[in-house]
Design a binder for these strands. Structure first.
Lengths: 338, 338
DNA sequence: TTGTAGGCGTTATCAG
DNA sequence: CTGATAACGCCTACAA
């Protein structure tokens, strides 16, 4: 009573496998009566095509791969949700792999997906990776690829991003509008494009508002964690007590800063104003509530899948496909910390 | 220059496909020289077996399915991480699907996975589901199945759980030890086993400490959200101002309560003590920091995969497999809210 | 309208 | 030690 196959249906009905297949797939050259009996029996037996065979035959798996640095992350889990939902609507399933911010692991994950012969790959790069050689494999094999959020401009593929520079510029301008004169930036690691762009946005906002840029006021995270936020808060207080504004690369880091400040009776926003980035859920539940930059994570997931799907379909139709870049809007969310 | 097959290697080497296959798979009955040349060529051509064909042949996909109510959730995303990591170590990939707490969608996801012919399924039930008929399909097809966290005792499968009743009992006992005399419980929905068990633990703790149980002090969430926490906090204050302790089904709800209390100058823990459940990251960053019950989410993921793997292997070897239940320990984490 | 034949790429059996 | 052959289940020209 296990896996029903076309053969079984054909045999019990005393007809050929071909006819059964055709009937099931709605071909017109099947007698109305045979069709009916086939459909009926298939229904009764709960026939479902063996996807292994279908995969082999059609050379596609209706499965895509997703590689992200970290699953346990408000931003990424929202992206995941966006991708999964859209994928499902379009008949695709999603295999998720974590790079854990390691290039070696990223390479391995990509190879796994390639071996698995997924129909396409969506990726957000790890902090260390840039234009690693393993991407050439994807290109050579012409596997549809979409990068989002943490991208490398050197890798030719579709991309879904925000304008990090502009978003950071707005965030810092917001601090300035609120009266900040000496603003520190806790930035992300050196390599990732979005950390660079946010830093650039910070710098440009200062310059445009006639505040001289001081590299000493820039603190660089390596792991972008809550703890780093705390420890930089301490450093900032110790070495630059006259600072009146902080722009943190991520809400998590900002919340770390806030925790330190709360513990040490630094009043936010009275003494120091603070703005984060990404609008994690957590930013609404701390006190004071954190001002931040909203990043449309769910939408990013959706759009990423759509770009991928376009490319998959183009490939199937033998059409050429020119990578596209979608830039999503961000918004400043003013709460209590600024 | 696309997909290298055994055939191509065989042809360029002028030998049979069979021999190539054997050489590659390390069979002993292949001449040392032929083996070498095969291995060499395969390496040079970057041969990887076509997994579609392998799947069809071996009747397994080396892929498992995971169905959870919600991806964007600190607890579940940790479980996901645990599962993905263990799966990868054992050569399995993971397809993730969301039920969004809907029975209809859960049913659909399971059917998708069944069609995909995953080697096994790990699931945490949606709040509404109990012993839905679609589980019988899994049983009939003998697809290995593991339930975790939100389980149904009626479905015969391996399970990875915590002792919710005991954990809740400890949480409430903790409140009592801290001096609470009148304790409210914000419970989860009516159906899920873990909400029931936590409620039972709450009740038992009261009884064992000679505090009479008052059903009016039990508030029932439908969605288990931050907002519900807030709104129940308001209700509690309005109808039972003499309450001095609250046990919330989840940290998210507790944080909602806390937000309301903070806004209305109710001091925690001085006026009311509060304990959550699950030890979400967010519970450490609110102020006061939330006391809670630590639930080993990552470990749950790992164990779930291992149970599944055991069952998959038993099935492959034609052995019978008796479902196991693993119960993981929880710990009270005392912070500032109690 | 129906069926035959071949192939997708791999693996297992069995004969040479 | 090597290879021919069949089979996994489905799909699609092409014949009948």
């Amino acid at each position: 009573m296990k896996n029903i196959t076309l053969k079984q249906i054909a045999e019990t009905l005393g007809i050929s496998i071909t006819t059964v297949s055709k009937a099931l797939k709605g071909y017109t050259d099947v007698n109305e009566n045979t069709r009916k009996s086939v459909l009926e029996l298939a229904e009764r037996l709960q026939y479902t095509p063996n996807s292994f065979a279908v995969n082999l035959r059609t050379q596609e798996s209706k499965t895509i791969g997703l590689v992200i640095p970290e699953v346990v992350h408000h931003f990424f889990s929202n992206v995941i949700r966006g991708i999964i939902e859209e994928a499902e609507k379009n008949g695709y399933l999603v295999i998720i792999l974590q790079s854990s911010e390691s290039v070696a692991s990223e390479k391995k994950q990509i190879e796994l997906l390639l071996q698995k012969r997924v129909d396409g790959i969506i990726i957000s790069l790890s902090n260390e990776s840039n234009n690693e050689s393993y991407f050439s494999q994807i290109m050579e094999r012409k596997i549809p690829l979409v990068q989002f959020d943490k991208i490398s401009k050197l890798i030719p593929s579709s991309k879904v991003i925000i304008n990090d520079q502009k978003a950071a510029y707005s965030a810092v301008s917001h601090l300035i509008a609120k009266g900040c004169k000496k603003i520190a930036h806790i930035r992300g690691p050196v390599n990732p494009q979005n950390a660079i762009d946010r830093f650039l946005g910070y710098k440009k906002a200062l310059e445009d508002h006639n505040i001289s840029f001081d590299p000493k006021l820039v603190y660089t995270c390596t792991d972008v964690t809550f703890e780093e936020g705390k420890s930089f808060a301490k450093q900032i207080l110790a070495s630059h007590p006259d600072i009146d504004g902080i722009f943190a690369i991520t809400d998590l880091v900002a919340v770390g800063v806030l925790a330190y400040f709360n513990d040490h009776k630094i009043r936010v926003p009275e003494d120091i104003k603070l703005i984060g980035f990404s609008n994690w859920f957590m930013s609404q539940v701390v006190s004071p509530k954190l001002s931040t930059v909203d990043q449309p994570s769910f939408e990013m997931g959706k759009q990423s899948f759509h770009l991928l799907l376009e490319e998959i379909n183009a490939k199937k139709d033998g059409l050429s496909f020119t990578p596209k870049t979608i830039e999503l809007d961000t918004t400043i969310i003013e709460r209590e910390s600024t």
